[in-house]
Simulated assay, not measured.
Amino acid sequence: MDIKPTILIVEDEPNILRGLTDLFIFHGFNVESETDGQKGLERALAGQHACIILDVMLPSIDGFQICDAIRQHSQTQPILMLTAKNTEQDVINGLTLGADDYLAKPFSTAELVLRVTALIRRSGMTANESQLVINEHVNICTQKLTGVSYQKAMKYTRREVAILSYLKQKQTPVSREELLKQVWDYKSTDHLDTRTVDIHIAKLRKKIESDPKSPRHLVTFRGEGYQLLIG
């Protein structure tokens, strides 16, 4: 018998929580839920979840604090955040703290299921090589999601390693749309906000570049996309 994946939903709106619970049970998931931020964090840290869905606005502590605390504990846990509004700052906050993806309310339930499914599928993939060497000062263990950058210890999320690994494999400029399809596993990017990619790139530059404002390795080619230059 197949074991159903378990997701955790932390959402304080009863009607939304009930709808999301029914939605994911219908699609073959086990669902755990909390309406309080602190209790949601405790459950997140105590259990094993295929994905955690976090609302931003919650009682006691907000979704940003929960996301940050989870990332201190695990770099690999898939996290999707639900934002009340598609504001630049909410998106930046969530992704900077380590969320893998976000969706703005009101959202399509079909889109939410697709994104969660994609997150879970990507989280189960392993890198083909155990070490990713950017230059003599920057190297990453793709299995442990840790590394050294200019003599500083670094932690990476699974998504960040997947981006770097894909860019290294391609060795040519890669568009935002291609990254969303190949790394985020989206089937279509027609209605997706590509800021998700830009924010992840900005985070990576802070980790692998000696001067993130003048990148030498993770560079942008106007009109073409991003390329990883090794050496």
Score class of each variant (00 low, 15 high):
residue 68 D to L: 07
residue 166 Y to Q: 10
residue 100 D to L: 01
residue 216 R to C: 15
residue 154 M to S: 07
residue 143 Q to L: 10
residue 81 M to Q: 05
residue 155 K to R: 12
residue 67 C to H: 03
residue 211 D to V: 10
residue 104 A to P: 09
residue 80 L to H: 11
residue 167 L to N: 06
residue 31 V to A: 11
residue 153 A to M: 08
residue 53 I to C: 12
residue 60 S to R: 13
residue 170 K to T: 07
residue 74 S to Q: 00
residue 8 L to W: 04
residue 16 I to G: 01
residue 88 E to T: 15
residue 21 T to S: 06
residue 153 A to K: 12
residue 131 Q to G: 00
residue 148 V to W: 07
residue 88 E to G: 08
residue 147 G to P: 01
residue 181 K to F: 00
residue 151 Q to V: 11
residue 222 R to P: 00
residue 159 R to A: 08
residue 24 F to P: 06
residue 192 L to H: 11
residue 24 F to W: 06
residue 158 R to V: 04
residue 60 S to Y: 03
residue 177 E to T: 12
residue 134 I to H: 03
residue 220 T to Q: 10
residue 183 V to S: 08
residue 114 L to S: 10
residue 169 Q to F: 12
residue 152 K to F: 10
residue 140 I to L: 04
residue 182 Q to C: 07
residue 117 T to R: 14
residue 18 R to Y: 03
residue 220 T to N: 14
residue 201 I to Q: 05
residue 180 L to R: 01
residue 195 R to T: 06
residue 226 Y to V: 14
residue 182 Q to S: 04
residue 184 W to I: 09
residue 142 T to E: 04
residue 204 L to E: 14
residue 215 P to T: 07
residue 22 D to M: 15
residue 230 I to E: 06
residue 74 S to L: 00
residue 111 E to A: 13
residue 69 A to L: 04
residue 91 V to T: 05
residue 72 Q to E: 14
residue 215 P to M: 05
residue 53 I to N: 01
residue 95 L to R: 06
residue 211 D to K: 15
residue 145 L to M: 10
residue 218 L to N: 04
residue 229 L to M: 13
residue 98 G to E: 07
residue 122 R to W: 06
residue 112 L to N: 09
residue 181 K to I: 05
residue 180 L to V: 00
residue 162 A to F: 05
residue 12 D to Y: 02
residue 123 S to V: 01
residue 167 L to R: 08
residue 116 V to H: 07
residue 98 G to S: 09
residue 125 M to R: 13
residue 34 E to M: 09
residue 98 G to I: 01
residue 165 S to L: 14
residue 158 R to L: 09
residue 60 S to F: 02
residue 82 L to S: 01
residue 117 T to N: 15
residue 109 T to K: 05
residue 3 I to C: 01
residue 148 V to N: 12
residue 224 E to S: 15
residue 131 Q to E: 09
residue 32 E to S: 13
residue 155 K to T: 15
residue 94 G to Q: 09
residue 141 C to L: 02
residue 229 L to H: 10
residue 223 G to Y: 08
residue 75 Q to N: 15
residue 163 I to E: 03
residue 132 L to E: 07
residue 133 V to S: 03
residue 113 V to K: 08
residue 60 S to H: 09
residue 209 E to F: 02
residue 90 D to Q: 11
residue 100 D to S: 08
residue 99 A to S: 11
residue 119 L to R: 12
residue 29 F to H: 05
residue 149 S to P: 00
residue 61 I to E: 04
residue 214 S to I: 10
residue 108 S to E: 08
residue 8 L to Y: 06
residue 84 A to S: 15
residue 16 I to T: 09
